Simulated assay, not measured.
Amino acid sequence: MKQSSAERDSPRSLDVLILPAFAAEDFALPDDEDAPSELDYWVDAYDFEREVRVPGANAPVYVTDHGVGVTPTGMGKVEAATTLTALLAAPELDLSDAYFVTAGVAGAPPNVATLGAVFLADAVVDWDLKHRWSDGGGPGADETRPIDLLKYRPRDYVYRLNDDLVESALNVAEGVELAADEEASAYCQRYDEATARSSPFVGVGATVCGDEFWHGRALAEQVEWLVERYDAGVYVTSEMEDFGTASALARFGALDRYLSVRGVVNFDRPAPGETPRESMDDGGLALELGLENAFRVASGIVDHLASRSA
């Protein structure tokens, strides 16, 4: 469809902007190995008629004729914050009333999740801004805990999301049928926790964002401590982008229109009898199941938000 000069020059108004982290081209893999993509599910299911290129963003924004857009932010907090800042400041886009929906994958504790479960975040906690001690912290410190809150922090590094929006999204999510996978289910039986052994479900809780892919029980206990100190509830997922996304949205006054939807692809600690390295090398990455269920839930939410904005 040919656009008029006025259409080309006017900003593209969006009702919902979907924010997966990565597309297949973001990875450098051997020729015989297929790269994963959080973007492809959306491209395959929606009619994105146009693309908007924004300087500073990780990729073009693909848009429908009905006010829905999608763009991969790039992996990690820096990529996510840089992309969102570029998009929010871009004259090519009008995001003044848009909802923002992260749709991607995450790790999770086996006592609160199973592979293929999907969680909506009600809080986003940063994992990286803190003290870490190599010797237990010195005299007077809790020598059993090698981390502490950053002493000179200007604020707690946690964003609390819009409760009403999260509740509305949860009402939609609970009506979505989730996929199951026999191989993932069999893997979950290695764990003692009843929740880990359950079928995929939808839940709500805090997500913890960090730039390292950590794995192991000791680290998970530190994450749990940090989330409790911030009074952010129970952490249910760990990922790499959401604090960067939330930081940019907060700077532009748009945090109250943000949702994070994450499908669980791995547990954040090994099963009994395994080392952390054995756990990651031996499996436990239910990528296709997590991607599929995250898309099912997030697309239901996106359609609901788009119809509400129409």
Score class of each variant (00 low, 15 high):
G137Y: 09
S168N: 10
A23W: 01
A173K: 00
A108R: 06
D192F: 01
L287V: 14
A271L: 08
Y152N: 13
V68C: 03
T207R: 02
F27K: 08
A220W: 02
N111Y: 09
T237S: 10
T73I: 02
R262Y: 08
R296H: 10
Y99V: 01
D44T: 12
V227P: 00
F100P: 01
E193K: 05
P30S: 07
Y99R: 11
Y235A: 00
A89T: 15
G138T: 12
T102I: 05
D15M: 05
G67F: 00
D211E: 15
T85G: 15
V202G: 01
R251Q: 13
F119G: 07
A59Q: 09
L14M: 10
L287T: 13
F201R: 14
L19E: 04
N162K: 03
E79I: 00
D26I: 08
A90V: 13
A81F: 03
V264G: 03
D211S: 14
G69A: 08
A298F: 00
L19H: 10
G76K: 04
R197V: 02
G284L: 10
E177V: 12
T71C: 07
H304F: 13
Q3C: 05
G273A: 13
F100E: 00
A86D: 04
H215Y: 15
L115Q: 11
A123T: 08
A59H: 15
P72T: 07
D65R: 14
D128A: 14
R197G: 02
V265N: 02
G253N: 08
A173S: 05
G107E: 12
L285Y: 14
P30L: 12
L93A: 04
S247M: 11
I147D: 12
M280Y: 04
M280F: 04
E79P: 00
T83Y: 05
G116W: 01
A35S: 14
A90T: 13
T195P: 03
E51Y: 10
A194P: 12
Q3P: 05
E79Q: 14
P139W: 01
W42L: 09
R257H: 10
R145H: 09
E49P: 00
A23G: 15
G140R: 00
F201K: 14
Y99P: 00
K130R: 15
V302N: 01
L29D: 06
A113Y: 11
G233H: 06
P200Y: 03
L84W: 03
V68S: 02
A310N: 13
W225F: 04
L170F: 14
E38H: 03
D32R: 08
M75R: 11
L165Y: 03
D164V: 12
D9A: 15
L87E: 05
G104T: 07
E274S: 03
N293D: 08
L226E: 12
W214C: 13
D9S: 15
I301A: 12
D126E: 15
V234S: 11
G244R: 07
L19C: 13
T144Y: 07
F252P: 02
Y187A: 11
L39P: 03
A81T: 06
R160H: 15
E79Y: 13
T73Q: 05
D31S: 13
Y62I: 01
V124C: 06
A250Y: 06
S279N: 12
V172D: 00
T114L: 08
L291S: 07
D181K: 06
L95R: 04
A271T: 05
G138P: 07
G203H: 06
V68H: 01
L226H: 11
S10Q: 12
E92G: 02
A98H: 07
L129Y: 10
E38G: 03
S4E: 03
